[in-house]
Write a protein that binds this DNA or RNA. Structure first.
Lengths: 130, 130
DNA sequence: CAGAATCCATTCGGATACTG
DNA sequence: CAGTATCCGAATGGATTCTG
């Protein structure tokens, strides 16, 4: 398969014993490994400038505290941008940053696939291999 | 908790039944949202038939209990296959199932990107943009 | 070697209530 | 509308120990 060993930069990585490009353990992946994080990115991607209420409506089963925590994390990570309009009633719009869009592009195939798999598993009641 | 799209309310449903592709909330995504799950899939993808020890060595900071839990979950989900050879010393090899390979294909771009982002963020020290 | 089992600290996330 | 604050139970994941 495509096992690009990266361009072996002569700047020898001090910490990594041989392997390097396999698995980012912290950083963004940790964020994305939190509940609904990936889905959240995709939702904002899908509905464009998204207001809090829109997002909340999409995830009916998610509590507001969790949702706003996740949103805040994604904003802090530079994945989402938050635009606040001081009107009455107040309006806030979340959007993907450029980074966020890059992420979204990579997330979409995954979520699409996941959805498909879930359906077939629910249909057959079992996974393919066991 | 089975998530039915709640088609009972057909009265002016804002979300058309056509684009249901937004966000799988349960199923595989829940699994993948657990710690190291995605990285695990990619590692097995990368090193092919992977023995437990190899995997463990790749994630130096992950405890064996967590690792084996995650492995079991992925096997149960039909993403990894587990081949056990009754030798002495015992040998076990994990591999991606077909489903797993499909997943891996979608995961690889994501992890690659994540790695890249992490590096630039660490380098510049910034996590916010715009 | 490849884990299973156990125990436990921490974190996470849900419910609820309240605010600018 | 768009959250925040607080509380708390549940789940997660780590350390350690033990085993076929």
């Amino acid at each position: 398969m495509a096992e690009t060993p990266d361009s072996a930069t002569e700047t020898a990585d001090s910490s990594s014993p041989g392997h390097d490009c396999l698995c980012p353990l912290g950083g963004v992946m940790d964020l994305l490994s939190r509940r609904y994080a990936m889905q959240l990115v995709c939702v904002v991607d899908a509905i464009g400038p998204a207001r809090y209420g829109d997002i909340e409506a999409t995830f009916e089963e998610v509590s507001s505290s969790t949702l706003s925590t996740r949103l805040e994390e994604l904003v802090d990570a530079g994945i989402l941008s938050r635009e606040q309009y001081d009107e009455i009633p107040p309006r806030v719009e979340y959007e993907l940053t450029e980074t966020g869009e890059e992420l979204g592009e990579r997330l979409e195939p995954l979520l699409r696939w996941a959805e498909e798999i879930d359906e077939t598993e629910l249909a057959t009641g079992q996974s393919k291999e066991r």
